[in-house]
């Protein structure tokens, strides 16, 4: 699973940080840094974070299958 956070939309509520601290971290008071590639054992927590985000800024999914063709 890959994630990207729309940091234009993020307002630093940090619900994701509480739910999945291994993936999401605050840098200072409200700057969000995260690991775009989600470890297998964090997938469930990240799904919760996606759902809990008050501004719905987290997109989780897979990379494109760009094998050509």
């Amino acid at each position: 699973m890959q994630i990207v956070v729309d940091l234009t939309r993020c307002q630093g509520y940090a619900q994701c940080v509480f739910l999945s601290p291994d993936v999401f971290q605050l840098h200072g008071q409200e700057g969000l840094l995260y690991a775009p590639s989600v470890p297998e054992d964090q997938v469930q927590r990240v799904r919760q974070a996606v759902a809990a985000c008050p501004v719905q800024a987290i997109l989780a999914g897979e990379e494109v299958a760009a094998g050509g063709g």
Partner: peptide
């Protein structure tokens, strides 16, 4: 590891 997730597979021919 910063690959972008897709909202849906755009079913495209990728010339990378």
């Amino acid at each position: 590891t910063t690959g972008l997730p897709t909202r849906r597979d755009p079913d495209a021919d990728w010339r990378l």
